[in-house]
Each structure stands twice: as C-alpha cells, then as structure tokens.
C-alpha cells in the first residue's frame, strides 16, 4: 500500500510506524513515533552515523532539523481531516543548545491550518522538555494536487 493510501487511515501508533516505514529517509534516520493520548511523540534514537561533532559527541545540526521537519509533516498529516501529503514551503530553525548523542524527542503543534497552507511549530528536546535543544516553524502546502 502506498503512503498516499496509508495516510487515509486513523493515525494510531501502529499506523504512524507504517507511515515512517514508507519513507526511506525516516528509516535512514531511525525515527519512531508513538501516541501519547491525542498527542504524538516523535523519537530519534542515538546513532553514531548521525554525529556532527565527533569530539562532544553531538548530533549533526542538520539531522536535528530534518528530524523536526519530518515530525512536523507527519504530525500535520495525522491531524488533517482529509489527509494529503504536505510539501514544505519553508523551514526556520533556532538552535538552542547542542544535541548530545542520546535520545531526542519532538512534539508539534499546528499553529494555523488554512485551506492551502499550514503553519506548524516543532520543539525538540533530550533530557528535559522544558529545556529544548531546538525550536522550529514550518509552512506546508497542503492543497490537493488537482486544486493547486
């Protein structure tokens, strides 16, 4: 079943994993997602191949950004009434502290969803949710292909 078909399913924990498994880049990063009540918790397990600074060691900043962007897109799909695959328009990332080689989490919220565009904010943290490693904001185009 293709990703376009899969996103029509209710986003329970098992479905989220199916979605991630359909995206080669999400598999490469080793991302995972779970439901927490009605919220989704995204998880990036530590992996040596994701290291940017070998002496700390710390995750590559770009990887943290990519994980957050993927989290934002999947969160959006899970919350849409008529899911379509979102296209990222732009992505703005604030790095707050270096991300060490340990479990990284992300949580997202849809700040505004219009008919064509959604604004999603994403927070990533490691040990303490109140001390985020990075915050980001993404705009996604969510128009159905035949209505663009």
């Amino acid at each position: 079943m293709s990703l376009v078909d899969l996103i029509q399913r209710d986003p329970d924990a098992a479905t989220l994993k199916l979605w991630l498994n359909k995206i080669p880049y999400a598999r490469y990063l080793g991302m995972d997602a779970d439901m927490q009540g009605s919220d989704i918790l995204f998880r990036l397990p530590p992996d040596d191949k994701l290291i940017g600074n070998a002496s700390l060691p710390a995750l590559h900043g770009g990887v943290v950004g990519a994980f957050m962007e993927l989290s934002g897109a999947i969160h959006l799909v899970a919350k849409m009434e008529n899911p379509v695959l979102p296209k990222v328009i732009n992505f703005s990332l604030d790095y707050l502290r270096a991300s060490r080689l340990r479990e990284t989490y992300a949580r997202c919220s849809i700040t505004r969803q219009g008919r064509q565009v959604a604004n999603v904010s994403i927070t990533a943290w490691q040990e303490d949710m109140d001390a985020p490693n990075a915050t980001a904001r993404a705009h996604f185009l969510i128009a159905e292909p035949n209505k663009e």
Partner: peptide, 9 residues
C-alpha cells in the same frame, strides 16, 4: 530526495 537531506547539506 527528502528536504531534510537538503537541510543537512
């Protein structure tokens, strides 16, 4: 390619 890979680059 995923846009995240472009972010990394």
């Amino acid at each position: 390619l995923h846009s995240g890979a472009v972010t990394v680059l």
